[in-house]
Nucleic acid binder design. Sequence first.
DNA 1: AAAGGCATGTAAGGTGTTACATGATTGT
DNA 2: ACAATCATGTAACACCTTACATGCCTTT
Lengths: 188, 188
Amino acid sequence: MVSRPLATLAYALLGLIQRAPLSGYALMKTFQTTPMRQYSGSPGAVYPALRKLERGGLIRGVVERQRSLRPRRVYCLTSRGREALRRWLAPPVTVEDVALRERELMLRFALMDGVLPPSQIDRFLTTMSESLDGYATSIEPFLDARSMSTHARLALESGLEGLRGRAAWARRAEQQLRTTRRRGRKRS
Amino acid sequence: MVSRPLATLAYALLGLIQRAPLSGYALMKTFQTTPMRQYSGSPGAVYPALRKLERGGLIRGVVERQRSLRPRRVYCLTSRGREALRRWLAPPVTVEDVALRERELMLRFALMDGVLPPSQIDRFLTTMSESLDGYATSIEPFLDARSMSTHARLALESGLEGLRGRAAWARRAEQQLRTTRRRGRKRS
DNA sequence: AAAGGCATGTAAGGTGTTACATGATTGT
DNA sequence: ACAATCATGTAACACCTTACATGCCTTT
């Protein structure tokens, strides 16, 4: 029996903790003070999510300031947590992903370096640009439907531009990462 | 006491019903078969939302096929519903909106024609492009932060391109609507 | 007569939001 | 001494997803 996937916020927490052990408060502040704020930074979401991750054995909280009434917990990833993170990061991008879960996709990309090997990062970007192009092509015909009002058409155009733009970005990112890696190898 | 705002799905339903009376099933199909599918089209979301709107007096369901065990309800907007829709559509766009509620914004734009006067549509697009530029400028400095990994930087670049692109779209849309209106007036 | 689409709905479960509450520590 | 920030948490509520259930109608 495969345990059900976690919420996006839970993966964001795993990904941040993976880079460095952090307290709940530090995690919240990361959300509140950076462009990651889309992934939510209210205490009512973060603390319960951390509790749940700890109950599931994906993170482990070490209590500093023991004797205090208000202990401070710093969380580390466990090996099971690292595994869960990898299983979320690794799969190729589907059309469903780009149609309905764009934010989660960008979060995955932002958190995958140092966790996935270059080959899987390349696959992520390749399947991402393919899926974006495929989805864009599949909704383009709606532009011609006479049922569309001017506003609906303009809104759809905005969406299509976004899809095409992100596809181009994915291709550029793949190129850039490749050359960066080459330079890295030369230098070493 | 001002009643709390409705969920995005509820406004999507109001907006669609406003154009033409529709049944719950027809609304669901609209979501499932068009790019509006991002706004969700599962029966478990749509039917309870319609019930709630009817309880609140924003829509009224007329039952066809009375004597059947499975009646078919066709919903119409009430004047209170039209008012609620307008109150959701009318406000100027804020930075919070573009940072956290981009989808809702595009839905608002797609549904506002025929409901808001041109002046308010213009204001929507003007404040939208301003807010997009403002938000983009506010997160640009993060590109230079040394704490950003290559992946985080690339993800942020993608986000910034999206913001700039939508700002350009909003300006283009405003121009286009203006000229369309002029042509419309000339012809009449 | 069976299949598939029309058409409506409920139940369980998880997740998030808002608002509130508590206490410690640091700076002025 | 006071305010702000650090730091953690709970409770109420709303909402959505998934899965299931029901029955009608049309086509093959």
